[in-house]
Amino acid sequence: MTSAVEVKGVTKKFKTVTALSNVSLTVGKGELFGIIGADGAGKTTLFRILCTLMLADEGRAEVLGFDARKEYRSIRSRIGYMPGRFSLYTDLSVEENLKFFATVFNTTVEENYELIADIYTQLEPFKKRMAGQLSGGMKQKLALCCALIHRPDLLLLDEPTTGVDAVSRREFWQMLGRLKEQGITILVSTPYMDEASLCDRVAFLQDGTILAVDTPVGITGLFTAPLFSVRANEKHKLLTRLRSYPHAKSVYAFGSSVHYTDHRPSASSEEIMRYLSESELQEITIERIEPGIEDTFMALMKTDDGSHHE
């Protein structure tokens, strides 16, 4: 057995909503694997099926070699799970939470301390503080410690960085990197595109369907059209102007610039510049750029007419 997670054709419906539709993916042992998708894409449902809290309607899921339906007990004692919302006891102190989860898993904090030492030393000064009084970043670190306390083989982290500031997010990802070095397989979901590049491999999930699974570099390789980054003094006018260009394929605001692709593979920045110069726009700059993960995701997303998009 070389894969930690094996999902084949999993479908899950809730009344009228199809949360997951024919999802298949494989996570190798020791991999740091990211599931990227927006709210409602099906990330949480997938995680709940993997940690055996839900049953798939169709298809099968294997976790650490055990069947998620029949052998759920074996899976539960071997995984560490961090649900999407903060799920520790807010009226218990940092220390008490950790101790509690250690006893729940029939272990002690001392037994596996070296695994969490790196993270817990940051929490130590506040160990008497109630978990509810911690900052978002601290809460996530504590939740991670609690999920690790029984030395699981697989970590399932559902949106661990949502609502956490940039500094804590970065630290959190550094911790994941170190855990990976210790041989723990990590499956993490996130709505943030920029976190995709920190994973070994990622899967894009949209409306319950997997759009692509690949390494971050492999993913951007799927984007083949020439991409231009355009700037001008007035962004709204720039967007409108570019969208009315007959050859425009996609025009999206992208931070302080606008990302533009053309229907013609041979499109050149000079041509676009000429078109834009005919308007009242000023300070125009056009630059050919390499696509990022977010560009690729948007290109892969199923596109209807535009306005009626979920």
């Binding site: 998708g37 927006a38 709210d39 609502g163 709505p191 605001a253 995701f297 997303m301 306005s307 979920e310």
Partner: peptide, 17 residues
Amino acid sequence: GGVDPMTRRRFWDMIYE
């Protein structure tokens, strides 16, 4: 927060408008 990149762009379009 939490929306897909496409929806986010549409939202910013409205803001710019």
